[in-house]
Amino acid sequence: MGPGPGSLLINPPGSEPKFWFGMPALYVWAVLWFFVEAAVILVAARVLWGKGQDNE
């Protein structure tokens, strides 16, 4: 939902630009979603993907 409908909640077309922590809110939103995606992948790699695969 980072680039999708979620971004419409932050700064939809025609709205006034918002700023979070002095940075454009959409940029902070993109960075936040990057961390969410990275965290999901890190957890998946440790918990799900590794099971029974490393003894090859």
Binding site: G2, P3, S7, P24, L26, Y27, A30, F34, E37
Partner: peptide
């Protein structure tokens, strides 16, 4: 602008 930065996702 900033909307194209979402490409990185």
């Amino acid at each position: 602008g900033v909307s194209s930065m979402f490409l990185a996702l």
